[in-house]
């Protein structure tokens, strides 16, 4: 079964949303940005020898936030959670959100035993988004700087058409010459950078909003 949800920043709300399906008899198989793939609990294969039958909180999903520089670090992290009864479901090494499911009835029901370490997830998220934001911001200012000349061009569009006597032509011959010149005029005007700047600003806004929101959540949850 596939479910879709706009990407969460509030991990606690994400856990609640996912676990609603877990309690209805599903297991989370994979998460891909906004696609959540669930499989029925019956397809569960035994993960450990002499495994005790799962309790009502089996396969409960919890999220952690971590990224890793090396494979052994990532492996060490996942092994430690598996030892403690939490199986890694989804999340890449360079990613930040890591999804775990509770496979042992001996495991705690939470991934964190105090509010400070639980809220620290949001601080790591905020750091991640700020790191994403900085290079985008640099590109943004650089392209604005480059665009300044293009803005001037916007008011002098005629001068970008270099064919002599173009504007004196009339009728069909004018349009033929005009259309032939248009691509190069566009190129010279620098207006082609515009869609790129729009895309870039979209990234800047997303990163900034995510960074601010995670930091806000960090401050809120730390006090809770």
């Amino acid at each position: 079964m596939r479910k879709y949800h706009f990407p969460f920043i509030d991990l606690d709300r994400e856990e609640i949303w996912i676990n609603r399906y877990i309690r209805q008899g599903w297991r989370l198989k994979d998460v891909n940005l906004f696609i959540y793939e669930f499989i029925p609990k019956e397809t569960h294969t035994r993960l450990k020898e002499n495994e005790v039958p799962p309790d009502e909180n089996a396969f409960l999903v919890r999220c952690d936030v971590h990224k890793f520089d090396t494979d052994p670090d990532f492996e060490n992290y996942r092994t430690m959670f598996l030892d403690a009864g939490w199986k890694h479901i989804s999340g890449y090494k360079e990613d930040n959100v890591q999804y775990f499911e509770r496979i042992s009835p001996y495991a705690s029901e939470e991934l964190f035993s105090d509010t400070v370490s639980k809220s620290n997830r949001y601080l790591r998220l905020a750091k991640y988004w700020s790191c994403m934001l900085l290079p985008q911001l640099a590109v943004f200012f650089a392209s604005i700087h480059l665009m300044r000349s293009s803005i001037w061009n916007l008011f002098h569009l005629r001068e970008l058409f270099y064919s002599p006597g173009l504007w004196e032509l009339t009728g069909l011959s004018f349009w033929a010459a005009f259309l032939r010149e248009t691509p190069s005029a566009m190129l010279f005007s620098g207006l082609l950078v515009l869609p790129y700047i729009l895309l870039n600003s979209l990234f800047v806004i997303t990163d900034a909003v995510c960074a601010a929101r995670s930091y806000q959540l960090y401050c809120k949850k730390k006090k809770a």
Binding site: D64, Y77, M80, S108, F112, S113, S117, R121
Partner: peptide
């Protein structure tokens, strides 16, 4: 004192 996995890793 029972330290959960996520807290342990952070610690």
């Amino acid at each position: 004192v029972r330290i959960a996995a996520g807290t342990m890793y952070g610690a």
